[in-house]
Design a protein around this nucleic acid. Structure first.
Ligand code: MN
Ligand code: MN
Ligand code: ZN
Ligand code: ZN
Lengths: 152, 152
DNA sequence: TTACCAAATGGAAATCATTTCTGTTTAGAG
DNA sequence: CTCTAAACAGAAATGATTTCCATTTGGTAA
């Protein structure tokens, strides 16, 4: 937590109860959350919590590198914690489509500034979706079970 | 064009004047377009053209592999033509942030089904943004010019 | 400790992209 | 040519996100 607050201070932002509550929430959750998820999870905990403030803060925390915005084709807004263990280097993320757990992906072909197919790369988005170990195992167990049943 | 219409037929969709007009538009344009862009470009050309129909058709044409949806952090909706030359193989796209020209990116570390960081990959998004050759040159010329001016 | 002010806040309201609905038209098969 | 599912336009609903504004507050400096 302290480490994340430091990022806030480093970027000239105030440390407020709201922001601490949001970071705390993401530290508890293992996965990504929508602004609505955040509101529901926090309602009651620290009095009311307006959605506009949540949108604002999620974006600010992302700017500070505390959160990252998960990329989806539909553009649905979801954020997750860029964990302390992820370090400072360039990396991307993989999200489990079942339990929403987040993993760090270090391998990347791209570095902004390099040439790609005749273009000078300015920015790049890489977002992976998959099944984490435990969810993959669950899914396998389930399909094995169904197979057994079908055989009678 | 005929090649694109074939994709429509192959997926059991009807070939309508609207769809032809949309494909025609993307063939003329070199870049990506928002639903609004499409409506503006097509208004007048073929009578009225309702936005709901445009949303529907852009999505359908994407399903058929004629268009692809450009990925943005903000989730803004933009589509571009997956050119005939791009072939059938797995590929991604790079878009020029200045002129919106689209290039094909064949190199990709990922193949759905493979293991990545302990996750089984289910899907992946790769979207590059850059400057195409001509726009990069323009930008360089401009900055060179400004440099000269500053030196007096 | 206190005073101060830019930053942060909540809530109401506005915005605006997207979807839903409905009645009409049409592409394409038979 | 006839018929039907698919496609269509337009009006209206929806709902996520933003804007606005009056109030509060964190952090700095006296
Ligand atoms: Mn990270
Ligand atoms: Mn393509
Ligand atoms: Zn990268
Ligand atoms: Zn790929």
């Amino acid at each position: 937590m302290e480490e994340h607050l430091e990022k806030l201070r480093a970027s000239g932002r105030k440390v407020t109860p709201r922001r601490k509550a949001i970071i705390q929430l993401f530290l508890q959750e293992q996965g990504d959350l929508s602004p609505q998820d955040v509101q529901e999870a926090l309602s009651g905990t620290t009095g009311q919590f307006g959605l506009p403030g949540i949108y604002r803060n999620l974006e600010i925390l992302t700017t500070c590198g505390i959160l990252f915005r998960v990329v989806t084709y539909g553009g649905e807004r979801r954020y997750a914690l860029c964990k302390a263990g992820h370090g400072e280097g360039h990396h991307h993320h993989i999200v489990c489509i079942a339990c929403r757990k987040v993993g760090k992906v270090s391998d990347c072909l791209y570095k902004d500034g390099m040439m790609v197919e005749g273009f000078r790369l300015v920015s790049h988005i890489v977002q992976l979706n998959g099944l984490c170990e435990s969810c993959a195992r669950e899914k396998n167990d389930l399909s094995a079970l169904q197979e057994l049943r079908q055989q009678g």
